[in-house]
Simulated scan of single mutants.
Amino acid sequence: MHRLDAARLFRLVLERGVAGSRYHGSAEEGVPVRDIAEVIGRHLNLPVVSVAPEQAAGHFGWLAYFLGLNSPASSVLTQQQLGWHPAQPTLLADLNQGSYFNG
């Protein structure tokens, strides 16, 4: 989720949120890790290769567990309850703009 969408959501939770409630902020669902890696690899001029599931722990360490989960997140309820709707570029669009890779 874009930082500006996150900032607006935090503000809305503080202003309108119900104490004890949980709100989930995600701008999109089901972005494949491979797609994220490909964008990053392209901008850094690095090859992107697949890692077999049995090699993931050795390659990614503790992060392998989370990368192996198939648990898409949704902010539909948060959007309905708070009237919040992400308006900024999606993750891949934002990464493709290249500003993270300058400098």
Rank of each mutant, 00 (worst) to 15 (best):
H2L: 00
R3P: 02
L4G: 00
L4K: 10
L4T: 02
D5C: 08
A6N: 07
A6T: 08
L9K: 03
L9I: 01
R11H: 14
R11N: 09
R11Y: 15
L12H: 10
L12Q: 14
L12V: 11
V13S: 04
L14H: 09
L14W: 07
E15H: 01
E15K: 07
V18S: 12
V18H: 12
S21A: 15
R22V: 14
R22K: 04
Y23R: 13
S26Y: 01
A27Q: 08
E28I: 07
E29P: 04
E29N: 11
E29G: 09
G30M: 03
V33S: 13
R34Y: 03
R34E: 13
D35Q: 14
D35M: 03
I36E: 01
I36A: 03
A37F: 13
A37C: 14
A37K: 08
A37R: 07
A37T: 09
E38P: 00
V39T: 00
I40Q: 06
G41Y: 06
H43F: 05
L44R: 15
P47L: 09
V48S: 13
V48Y: 11
S50H: 13
A52S: 11
P53Y: 06
Q55A: 15
A56D: 10
A57G: 07
H59V: 14
G61D: 03
L63K: 05
Y65L: 11
Y65D: 15
Y65R: 15
Y65P: 00
F66R: 08
G68A: 04
L69A: 05
L69H: 01
P72R: 14
S75G: 15
S75I: 09
V76F: 04
T78Y: 06
Q80S: 10
Q81H: 12
L82Y: 07
L82N: 03
G83L: 14
W84Y: 05
P86Y: 07
P86C: 02
P86N: 06
A87C: 09
Q88H: 04
Q88V: 01
Q88S: 05
T90F: 01
T90W: 03
L92K: 00
D94N: 06
D94V: 00
L95V: 12
N96I: 01
N96G: 11
Q97D: 12
Q97E: 14
Q97C: 04
S99P: 00
G103Q: 08
